[in-house]
Design a protein around this nucleic acid. Structure first.
Length: 753
DNA sequence: GAGCACTGC
């Protein structure tokens, strides 16, 4: 205990910088080489430094983190794990990895190859853009000494010494390289976001560090949670880097607000009337609410007459197409009259503006204190979205958005008392809010056998883990002892849910892996709903003219513009397969390929070209994995009666736990769980099948099952007899039907004899 | 006859 305390304190002691850097330079190969060679030559690629390098270097020297370089390297040298806390603007994401490269010896006995430094990011765009920036700072070509790796794109080479990658990607790498032996230092950035992948990496790295004394870990985080990290990593030293944000004044309401939407709009108008120039950022929970608020804001302000400056309220949410998202970067509208009051831009956004997207020029933030958050109910195995209060950390992050370019103000639409008493300190980490079937499969593949004693920073509910183990056991990925089976090994390699991976691995047995690949890919692309005209969506046209926004719906890949609903429905009907939505998706994919992936064809047929292109991309990745396992790519003859039957049976091999039965009352009940569900109205069935297989269960205005296909009761007992074992089945109508089917099967067998 | 916080492999 005494030594730990001493170690922590020493971090904040004044360090004699010259002696430290001298020691560091002496103690390692790279730093020494770089210091000793002519400073006009880049030690990484042997080329002379460009003029730009020195220009950027001057800017780098002004970053807060720059002044703690020697201190950081000293701490890193003395410890295996270092926790670094730095607020926005400290420069930690770009600079710390470069410091590491200077201070740590990455040479290997094989002089031709060096070890790497990895820096993880929760988002792809960040991995890409930060690595580009750092390559520029180091004056090297992106993809050479500095690279990045994200799904579908590995921009790195044998020369790469610093690699930015998504946290999910590092986890994938760990599956083939369990000790992460290519890396000398791993930096987990944005650790406070606590993504599922980061949380799994925490536990995994804690194990790996024991077996790799030469490996070092740097955990970088933005907020208060640092002490929790410190506790988790055996009192690793903590270093703090100041941020560079302007001060933000916080205001609370005197009384709780009954209607936060109304209060938010009222606050926007008040700011606009009373506060100096500067743009406003409003946080709301979802698309519908955001569009509504934008309309109301624009209307209310224009009703105030021309004594008041004009406003432009722009929506921002992830499913808005990129071209529409660009609108948030347009300048505020000019004053209506010469010398009249100036205009103001108002961005109304979901949580996307909290972390993923930064908008400069925001001076005012309005925070009603809510966000839609994923919750998982292990009992019914359903994930759903709930509007719930945000955490203190989240509120802090939101207010910080007001101080990026100048001092700002944040209006919290709740009382100060409520902030202190009601808000949780941190957002519940994702691992506590998710279905963990896929995570458990990954952990098993990573060699973690004892999940109960795995060192999670926040252990998930035992019931969630039990559910995950149960699902994987039913799927045959784990045996009864909980060990990974050969099937499970293969399944874990697919970047998909276990049900879908199982269906893919089994599909050659049903002689339809080509078709199952297409369906899986189509199911993997998310729907895009957006505003704008049809032209724009089809990727053919440009932005719609101002004021010409129509509401458009695209479930999965289908486009349905409000002004052409009938034509769109007719187009969809042409692809429709009466036996179900999965088969309809297959038809769309086939038609897309037959028409040479032509965007014009997509436009004419009301399908989203972008979605199909991305499905095709996913498909190629899945094909590569199938080929690696020697899983046959095959199809049943299209003219055979079994063509669709085989596909539907193959689907059941993975989704036999997602089946609903039509009761005599006319309602569907999910099998075993006996939940009342309704076919989602987007389905293309022309009848109500007795048994349906569904892709997802969504809780919205009612319990819906979405993307459904007709299956036969007989297939259930053929494909998944272990799950449809009636000795372990709740009393219900479905059970009685299945009993009959089993009896019929018995009789048939006797007759044949 | 309805509706999608945000990521990631």
């Amino acid at each position: 205990m005494g030594t730990e305390r001493k170690r922590k304190v020493s971090l904040f002691d004044v360090v004699d910088e010259t002696s430290v850097s001298a020691k560091i330079a002496k103690s390692n190969g790279i730093g020494a080489t770089m210091n000793n060679t002519n400073s006009s030559i880049n030690g990484w690629n042997g080329k002379p430094y460009s003029q730009r390098y020195f220009e950027i270097l001057e800017k780098r020297k002004t970053l807060p983190v720059w002044h703690q370089k020697d201190e950081f390297l000293q701490v890193l040298k003395a410890n295996q794990v270092v926790i670094l806390v730095g607020e926005t603007g400290s420069g930690k994401t770009t600079q710390i990895p470069q410091f590491v490269l200077e201070g740590v010896d990455i040479e290997t006995p094989d002089r031709r190859r060096k070890m790497m430094v990895a820096c993880t990011q929760p988002r792809r765009v960040a991995a890409m853009s930060v690595s580009r920036r750092v390559a520029e700072e180091m004056d090297v070509t992106i993809g050479e000494e500095v690279g990045y790796s994200i799904r579908f794109e590995d921009c790195s080479s044998a020369r790469t010494v610093l690699k930015y990658l998504t946290d999910g990607m590092l986890l994938r790498e760990a599956m083939t390289d369990p000790l992460l032996e290519r890396y000398k230092v791993i930096i987990l950035d944005e650790a406070h976001e606590r993504t599922l992948a980061t949380d799994v990496l925490f536990g995994l790295l804690k194990e790996v560090l024991k077996n790799r004394p030469d490996l070092k870990l740097v955990v970088m985080s933005a907020t208060l949670e640092a002490e929790k990290f410190q506790g988790y990593f055996n009192s690793a030293p903590l270093m703090k880097v100041p941020g560079r944000l302007h001060p933000v004044e916080i205001f609370y309401t005197q009384e709780p607000e009954r209607d936060y939407l109304e209060a938010a709009i009222r606050t926007v108008v008040q700011i606009h009337l009373c506060e100096p120039l500067g743009d406003i950022l409003v946080f709301l929970t979802g698309e519908e609410e955001i569009e509504d608020a934008c309309r109301k804001i624009n209307k209310e302000v224009s009703n105030l007459g021309d004594q008041v400056g004009p406003v432009k309220a722009v929506p921002l949410y992830s499913t808005l197409p990129p071209a529409m998202q660009q609108k948030i970067f347009e300048p505020a509208p000019p004053s209506l009259t010469e010398g009249g009051p100036p205009g103001r831009k108002i961005v109304v956004s979901t949580n996307i503006a909290e972390t993923s997207l930064t908008i400069d020029g925001i001076v005012y933030v309005i925070d009603p204190g809510f966000a839609k958050q994923k919750v998982y109910n292990p009992r019914v195995r359903v994930e759903s979205l709930l509007v719930s209060p945000i955490s203190k950390a989240s509120a802090h992050q939101r207010s910080g958005r007001a101080g990026r370019t100048q001092p700002g103000k944040c209006f919290r639409l709740y009382t100060e008392k409520s902030f202190h008493n009601d808000l949780q300190p941190q957002t519940y980490p994702e691992i506590l809010r998710s279905n963990l079937a896929n995570t458990v499969l990954t952990l098993k593949k990573l060699g973690i056998d004892d999940l109960v004693h795995f060192d999670f920073m926040d252990p998930p509910a035992p019931e969630t883990l039990m559910r995950a183990l149960e699902v994987l056991n039913y799927l045959g990925a784990l045996d009864d002892e909980g060990n990974l089976t050969d099937l499970g090994e293969k399944m874990s390699e697919f970047p998909l849910d276990p049900q879908m991976s199982k269906m893919l691995v089994e599909s050659p047995k049903y002689n339809c892996s080509n078709e199952i690949l297409s369906i899986s890919s189509m199911l993997s692309v998310k729907g895009v709903k957006c505003l704008g005209c049809h032209q724009q969506l089809s990727c053919l046209g440009s932005m719609p003219p101002a004021g010409m926004h129509h509401r458009i719906l695209i479930p999965n890949c289908f486009v349905r513009p409000r002004e052409a609903q009938k034509a769109a429905d007719e187009a969809k009907a042409r692809f429709g397969h009466i036996d179900g939505d999965h088969l309809t998706l297959l038809n769309v994919y086939h038609a897309y390929k037959q028409n040479n992936e032509d965007p014009t064809w997509c436009y004419e047929n009301f399908v989203n070209h972008r979605a199909l292109k991305s499905a095709d991309n996913v498909r190629q990745q899945l094909v590569r994995i199938m080929t690696r396992f020697n899983l046959k790519l095959c199809s049943t003859d299209f003219n055979s009666r079994d063509y669709y039957v085989n596909i539907r049976k193959a689907m059941l091999s993975g989704y036999f736990m997602q089946v609903a039965h039509l009761e005599r009352t006319g309602h569907y009940l999910t099998v075993k769980d006996n939940q009342v569900v309704h076919l989602h109205p987007s389905n293309c069935l022309d009848h109500k099948p007795e048994w349906v297989i569904y892709n997802e269960y969504v809780l919205t205005s009612r319990n819906f099952i979405r993307t459904v296909t007709d299956v036969r009761g007989e297939w259930l007992i053929d494909v998944a007899p272990h799950y449809y074992d009636l000795t372990n089945f709740p009393q219900c109508e479905a059970k009685r039907v299945l009993e009959k089917l089993y009896r019929k099967r018995e009789k048939d067998r006797e007759n044949r004899k």
